[in-house]
Write a protein that binds this DNA or RNA. Sequence first.
DNA 1: TATTGTTATACTCTATAACTATA
DNA 2: TATAGTTATAGAGTATAACAATA
Lengths: 164, 164
Amino acid sequence: MGRDAGGGKGGRRADEEGCARQILEVVPQAMWLLRREMRRAAGAGLSVPQLRVLAFLRRSPGASLSAVAEFCGVADASASAMVDRLVRRGLAAREPDPSERRRVRLTLTPGGSSLFESARAHTGRSLAARLRGLGEEDLAVLADGLAVLAGVLSAAPGTGSEEP
Amino acid sequence: MGRDAGGGKGGRRADEEGCARQILEVVPQAMWLLRREMRRAAGAGLSVPQLRVLAFLRRSPGASLSAVAEFCGVADASASAMVDRLVRRGLAAREPDPSERRRVRLTLTPGGSSLFESARAHTGRSLAARLRGLGEEDLAVLADGLAVLAGVLSAAPGTGSEEP
DNA sequence: TATTGTTATACTCTATAACTATA
DNA sequence: TATAGTTATAGAGTATAACAATA
């Protein structure tokens, strides 16, 4: 019974325009919360993009720079700069790939790995604390909504206004 | 087929931890989409924070700098810099409040107003286009989920780990 | 003195363009 | 030549700290 199209919770039928407006309003706000929590996280001093890079490297050790760039959706040069900061901080390691010497193999250092774990745990905990006020019901609604959003994001990059 | 719309709504019971993880994963991705769309928006060349400031000033003409800072969740100095860029671009106007000369009254210029309109329209349209693939059902799920998220964001700033 | 804003400084994120070193 | 990364440069966002002007 959560919300169910046309009945509860939402009340009015949702339209694309309205959803778009909601996204435009809610997402930046959520982002700011994340950023703030991350900054506070156990003195980690990690930015959201940095956390994402670390997460990616943990999941894909030995990834190339362009893989990072693609995952992050940024230009190679931007990714290079981000990785460089992580390397300088001793959180990531960068070494040439022996079989393809143009490539670099990126990995987390032990320090990077543990910082990532604790930063994510902290952020997760403080988000979870905020969510604690929600009932079982609303929590499910939120989870389902986020799942739909995730689906939209990974779907065809430009079903809409694409000018090639 | 985002998630399973059939039957259990979410299937598994949602827990705070899981939702937190979802937020941490989905929100930055959504943010990057917004940013990209905004950058493309009709040559507007507006950033997401800039759009938010413009939106705020349209809704609250004559607002003070600290009001902008609070709305954006940034330090006064940061807001001052943002506003300054908008003023230099001729999108916003800044004049001292006659009755309280420490304060500034911020407003949109006609140019800022119309740029805001068109940028938001463009971004809204391209988001809506992406959403077009969703069924009535998923759209409602998304809308409700976003509404819950918005509630969480505006709720008690720190039900969790708050160190004043 | 307390409040409102600005300046100064420093970092991160990001883009584009030009360059290096492979292949 | 084409590909993988880096460097150079520029501008936005953000924070903190120091300052100015007004109350």
